[in-house]
C-alpha cells in the first residue's frame, strides 16, 4: 500500500482555485481520497471526506443547509468539522458518528488541503505562490486535468529544453536546448537557472518586450516539494545589465504551477502566469492566458501519452540525462517526504 504511493500526505495541496468553491457542494478527489468542499456562511471553506459515516453514500450528492451538509440518502447531518449533528428517528446522537475533516487554508488564490496527520498541519508551510495575489503582479490561469502522475508534470517544468521541441512555434527556440544551465538546491527548494545571452527572442517575448534587437533571456525554475514549481522568466535588451541583476529595461513574468495528485495516474494541475508589466490591461491578461492554454495543451497530450507508455512497461524505468538534474532533485525531495511518513516498526528502527 504505502510502498507504491508516490506522494506524501503530510503536505499542503491545492484542491481548487478560490473561485471554484462557493456555497454549494463540490466533489473532488485529492490524493486518492474523495473530498467534498464548500463555503460556510462566514466565507471559510470546509473540506470533508465525501462518504457518509452511515453507509458511505457520497455527501456531495446531498445538500447544504446553512453550514451543514445533509446526506442525500438518509438525512444524517454533519457540520463543517465532520461532526454529526442530527440523526433520523432517535433522540440521541451516536457519539462515534463523524466523517473525516481536512485542515484548510485559503492563500494565494488557492484552497489548500492537508491530507495527512492534522496535528502537523502548519499553515506556514503552504507553498509560496504569493505572486498570485500580489498587486505588483497581474495575470490569470486555469486548471488542467492531466492524465498522468503528478511527477511527470514536475519533470516537464524542471526541464524546459522540451520547449524547443514541444512548443517550437511559441516559446522555444534552439537557444534553450543549447544554453548551459546550473542545477542548485537546498533543504527546501531545487533550482535550475538558465541564462541565454545575446539571442533573438522567441515570438512571445519579442511581442511582450516591444523593442527590436537581441536580448538576454532568463529562466529560473524553483521547485518546492511536493508539487509546486515557480518559474521566473523574462527578457531584457542585451547589455542592459539583466544578468547582473538590473532587469529594469526588460519584462519579467512568473509561471506559477502547483500540481496535486488526484490519483496515482491523474493530476489537478493549477497554473497561472503573472507579469510585472502593463498591470492594468485585462485584455493582455486574457490574451496571455488563452495563448498559454494552447501551449499547455501541447504538454497535456505528451503527459497522457507518456503515462500510457509507462503503464505499458511499468518496470522499465527511466534513463536519465544531464538535463534531468532538476527533475531528479525534485524527485529526491519528494522521496524524502514520502519516506519520512513510512510507519517504522521499532525493530526496523534499531
Amino acid at each position: 500500500m504505502s510502498e507504491t504511493r508516490s506522494y506524501p500526505l503530510n503536505a499542503w495541496y491545492a484542491a481548487a482555485w478560490d473561485t471554484d468553491i462557493g456555497k454549494t457542494l463540490l466533489a473532488r478527489t485529492i490524493c486518492d481520497t474523495a473530498v467534498v468542499l464548500y463555503r460556510r456562511r462566514d466565507g471559510s471553506v470546509a473540506a470533508l471526506e465525501d462518504a457518509c459515516w452511515h453507509r458511505q453514500a457520497p455527501l456531495s450528492m446531498g445538500r447544504l443547509d446553512g453550514d451543514n451538509v445533509v446526506c442525500g440518502y438518509h438525512g444524517l447531518v454533519f457540520n463543517g468539522d465532520g461532526r454529526c449533528v442530527r440523526m433520523p428517528s432517535q433522540e440521541t446522537l451516536n457519539p462515534s458518528a463523524c466523517v473525516r475533516s481536512f485542515p484548510v487554508v485559503e492563500r494565494h488564490r488557492h484552497i489548500w488541503l492537508w491530507m495527512g496527520d492534522p496535528a502537523l498541519a502548519d499553515p506556514s508551510r503552504v507553498p509560496d505562490l504569493h505572486w498570485n495575489d500580489d498587486p505588483a503582479w497581474a495575470g490569470d490561469g486555469r486548471t488542467i486535468h492531466a492524465k498522468c502522475n503528478y511527477r511527470l508534470v514536475v519533470d516537464n517544468l524542471m526541464d524546459l529544453t522540451h520547449e524547443t521541441f514541444v512548443h517550437g512555434s511559441s516559446l522555444g527556440n534552439d537557444a534553450i536546448a543549447e544554453a548551459a544551465f546550473e542545477s542548485t538546491h537546498n533543504e527546501r527548494y531545487a533550482y535550475i537557472t538558465r541564462w541565454m545571452k545575446n539571442i533573438d527572442p522567441p515570438p512571445f517575448w519579442a511581442s511582450q518586450l516591444g523593442k527590436p534587437g537581441k536580448v538576454d533571456r532568463w529562466q529560473i525554475i524553483r521547485f518546492e516539494p511536493p508539487g509546486t514549481v515557480t518559474i521566473d522568466v523574462g527578457v531584457a535588451p542585451v547589455g542592459t545589465g539583466a544578468p547582473e541583476g538590473d532587469r529594469g529595461a526588460g519584462v519579467n513574468g512568473f509561471v506559477l504551477n502547483t500540481m496535486t495528485p488526484e490519483t496515482e495516474s491523474t493530476t489537478h494541475y493549477f497554473w497561472n502566469f503573472c507579469r510585472g508589466y502593463r498591470l492594468g490591461e485585462q485584455r493582455l491578461t486574457n490574451e496571455i492566458r488563452d495563448a498559454i492554454t494552447r501551449v499547455f495543451g501541447e504538454d497535456e497530450l505528451m503527459f497522457a501519452a507518456q503515462q500510457k507508455g509507462i503503464e505499458r512497461n511499468p518496470h522499465r524505468g527511466f534513463n536519465n540525462l544531464n538535463i534531468d538534474a532538476g527533475s531528479l532533485w525534485a524527485r529526491r525531495l519528494i522521496q524524502q517526504m514520502v519516506e519520512a511518513e513510512r510507519p517504522r516498526s521499532r525493530l526496523a528502527a534499531e
Binding site: P118, P343, S345, L347
Partner: peptide, 12 residues
Amino acid sequence: ILPADGILPFTP
C-alpha cells in the same frame, strides 16, 4: 504490542 508487519499510522 508490535505487529509482525509493523504498525500503521494512527491519530489521538
